[in-house]
């Protein structure tokens, strides 16, 4: 009796281990853990100090929030290149509403409670615009969002004529710093995970990404699903812009450069298929953290630009190659 129980327990433990290893996010999870460990050794512990880990979390939350929105788009086999354009636009708009400097566009400094909803709404509206162009006119998302990205930068420039905005109200600093920033990131990701896994909208996103034709034939409004995912991505881009503004406590045109590619890389490293319909939010969060850890370690280790670019490129290609080879091996 006792023996049997023991055996069962043993089997259960092994099962759990096996299951964990077979879980689709296992590779990225192990890669993240290994990366953290290796970097900790190389930097003699400098990367895993409390202050630095907090830094990584805060930095990752901007990228992570954008990546969550991007994941919705990529799950339907679309791209959203407009992330940094929309982010910068909301950043300039929000900061120039709140600033006490002469760059204020309202004539009086607005409170964060007024500015933040405006920033999010503007982000969502521009996402809706891309979504409308993609779904109603059948235009390729890559081109539409590329155009919106350019327009976003143009609008951002017009808000302040390209000048940086400083002097934001102290009460605004809360959102992007510890602990609110990472909490916002993780709750957005958890909400997205819930929506994708347990709601009919989530099913629709996967179905449309898997095969738009069969989704249409089974009664799903493909067009409205496209519209929704771009609106979500725009909203998340606006949120990312808000978080970054709060962290930097200033608005600048140059701030979010490269966010669209970083967010796409996080999503893809997280195991979401670029052909749509496959992937989950846990992977996306891990992907965003992985890029955050690597970026941070490279600056802690004082690596030059050359090394940074090469390492990042190699990791992006390597992660996807590993994923593809693993799938092929099955």
């Amino acid at each position: 009796m006792a023996e049997e129980l023991e055996r069962r327990e043993r089997v259960t433990f092994r099962d759990i281990a096996r299951r964990a290893l077979r879980h689709e996010n296992a590779v990225i999870g192990i890669a993240l853990a290994a990366m953290i460990a290796v970097l900790a050794v190389i930097s003699r512990g400098a990367t895993i100090t409390r202050g630095n880990m907090a830094n990584v979390l805060i930095q990752s939350s901007v990228r992570g929030v954008a990546a969550v929105g991007q994941a919705f788009c990529i799950l339907t086999a679309n791209f959203d290149l407009s992330v940094s354009g929309i982010g910068v636009m909301t950043m300039m708009l929000g900061s120039s509403m709140m600033t006490t400097e002469w760059t204020n566009i309202l004539g009086y400094p607005a409170s964060p409670f007024m500015a933040i909803p405006v920033m999010l709404a503007v982000g969502a509206c521009w996402g809706l615009l891309s979504g409308a162009l993609v779904s109603r006119f059948n235009m390729p998302s890559l081109i539409v969002t590329f155009g919106v990205w350019q327009i976003g930068y143009g609008v951002a420039y017009y808000v302040t004529e390209g000048k940086a905005v400083m002097e934001l109200p102290e009460s605004f600093a809360v959102y992007g710093s510890l602990p609110a920033g990472p909490i916002i990131f993780f709750s957005v990701a958890a909400l997205a995970y819930f929506v994708l896994t347990y709601t009919s909208f989530g099913r629709r996103v996967y179905a449309v990404g898997g095969s738009p034709v069969s989704a249409y034939l089974s009664g799903i409004s493909v067009k409205n699903t496209y519209l929704a995912v771009f609106a979500i991505s725009g909203l998340c881009a606006g949120l990312a812009g808000m978080l970054f503004t709060s962290r930097a406590m200033s608005g600048s045109i140059e701030a979010l450069r490269g966010l669209e590619l970083d967010s796409i890389a996080s999503v893809v490293i997280g195991g979401v298929s670029l052909f749509g319909g496959r992937g989950n939010m846990i992977g996306v969060v891990l992907g965003a953290l992985l890029i955050g850890v690597i970026n941070n370690a490279m600056s802690v280790l004082h690596m030059g630009h050359a090394g940074r670019y090469i390492v990042k490129g190699a990791i992006i290609i390597g992660a996807v190659a590993a994923d593809i080879l693993r799938r092929r091996g099955r």
């Binding site: 791209f79 590619l261 796409i264 890389a265 893809v268 670029l274 052909f275 670019y309 090469i310 990042k312 490129g313 190699a314 990791i315 992006i316 290609i317 996807v320 190659a321 593809i324 080879l325 092929r328």
Partner: peptide, 15 residues
Amino acid sequence: IGIPPFIATLGMWQI
């Protein structure tokens, strides 16, 4: 290997 062109060339851009 079958890496999506978007990713392979994004990585190559960085490299």
